[in-house]
Design a protein around this nucleic acid. Structure first.
Lengths: 156, 156
DNA sequence: ATTGAAATATGTTCGTA
DNA sequence: TACGAACATATTTCAAT
């Protein structure tokens, strides 16, 4: 949970350990050790180093939103008429659980958000009743993701 | 790893279990059981049910890309001049490790990608030498994320 | 669906090299 | 760094309810 300032050198073994755990966070470190030909204690020690370096942020179970009925992903570019309202707008966006990402961006929009909703109707409802209702939002541009082909973390 | 067709009813205890593991994939199920007031075996059995239902896709270690020197995130809208080339373009985008997401989208663009690079220079280099080089790419629009304020999964 | 107990496997620490 | 041994926990299965 703590991160040190020290710059860390990540060797090939560290990368292998991380590759395993980025794929399956519950893979036993003893098993990883066996595959790499080092002891479990060594893997454990390296993980502690990687954690304290801040490289490892945490671990997550990944759930399939479609099973919950969420099958429509969309990106929405938001124009804010007053830049000073940005933090307040973000605060309100955070209250909408369907908003998964929110970025201040260069370009035409003030903010770009990614959101996940059940269907197009749900999307329209969110736009009309939640997002457009936020003070300072003057206009939005919606891009529906018809199909997500790639979804991954940065490689090692 | 297998998913059944059966629709599953997720009760409050299932949600609590998932909430714990979505926050920390390595949290011991015995500990979760203790917090919820049920046995570890019960948690274990519910997890098997949730896995076979397809709700749980997997688990991941999350790493902090900034520690690796990746601090510039950008979204790029891509215009393809021939829709039939789309699958080939996606195939080539997949070869670029900096491309984290790729969506077919409604609207002006054919494709929207999210990518993570070291800095603006790296971004420019990717655009000029990798992305613009893909056959069928006629034009791109780049939006740099100045600051990501929200990053989460859908809630339960 | 849930439990406790038993068997197996893993996590963690520590002394040593 | 890495190791192995020792100890503490966790996972997994199972019979019973």
């Amino acid at each position: 949970m703590k991160s040190n300032q020290e710059r860390i050198t990540i060797d090939g073994i560290d990368k292998e350990i991380l590759r395993h755990l980025m794929e399956d966070a519950r893979k036993p470190i003893l098993e990883i050790g066996r595959k790499l030909g080092i002891s479990g204690a060594a893997v454990h020690q390296r993980l502690r180093k990687l954690e304290s370096s801040g490289l490892i942020t945490g671990s997550k179970f990944v759930i399939n939103p479609k099973v919950l009925g969420y099958s429509t992903m969309a990106f929405i570019g938001i124009y804010l008429d007053k830049a000073m309202r940005n933090p307040e707008a973000v605060k309100q966006l955070r209250e909408i659980p369907e908003v998964l990402e929110c970025h201040y961006t260069t370009g035409n929009w003030s903010i770009l958000i990614k959101l996940l909703c059940r269907d197009n109707e749900h999307l329209m409802q969110l736009l009309n009743t939640q997002i457009q209702a936020i003070e300072g939002v003057s206009r939005t541009e919606t891009f529906i993701s018809l199909n997500q082909q790639i979804d991954r973390q940065i490689g090692l």
